[in-house]
Amino acid sequence: MAVIINMGKGANMIDFLIYALLAGLGVALVAGPLGCFVVWRRMAYFGDTLAHSALLGVSLGVLLNVDLGIAVTAVCLLMALGLVALDHQGVLALDTLLGILSHSSLAAGLVVISLLSDVRVDLMSLLFGDLLSVTKADLWVIYSGAGIAILLLATLWKSLISITVEPELAAVEGVKVARVRTALMVITALVIAIAMKIVGVLLITALLIIPAATARRISATPESMAMVASLVAMLAVVSGLGASWYIDTPAGPSIVISATLAFCLSLGLKQKG
């Protein structure tokens, strides 16, 4: 009897682990190419701002009793589009604007959560991810989100590269620069919403930029850099999750540390291109 119960429990644990692994790999797949754009276009701070606003999304979702995934995606999208509009106005330098929005949305998220006395929200899992609590439903959300993001990136790839290289040349050559740029913001918001579960709002940007920076060392074309970045991110997910399993470290931070180790190793390689 006892043996059967143990076996059951063991199978359950394996399920957890497989869900966690699949979730992490799905996010890593799209984090590669998107992270490259974050690096090329110097959008790291922009990513941080959206990620921090995701916390505000969670707290508003709880407050208004809306599905958290929808709330987070909506707030990230609004923040992304709001940033595009404010940047156009040119009132403040973009990094100042990002600094204001980034930290005030993080603070607002924390304040609203603290006011929700009747709901217990696990702040640590929001900030640093909770990969091991991924459910089958989460997997569906993650893979549809990642699927849409990858599809959009693939469709717009040439235009995205073109506006990254030189937006005015791209515009003269017929690329709809504003539209493509907005699409990239939307994709970023979408990926941040699905990546939150994996590494939490404070570490999302790390999952985007560290694999891309690692891939740069050994890539001579934008495409190879995007693919290598995906591989590095997936490797980081596997080894981070392994560390979490064997030495009981938190999964999200372990994934980031694995990616950082890969980056340090890549520094020993000769720069390509």
Binding site: W40, R41, K158, V165, E168, L169, A213, G273
Partner: peptide
Amino acid sequence: YMPQKIHIDPTLPISTCRFLQL
């Protein structure tokens, strides 16, 4: 169009031929 100058971030690996192919 030939712009005055152009700056490509060195983190973006792109060969001259690929640049033209845009």
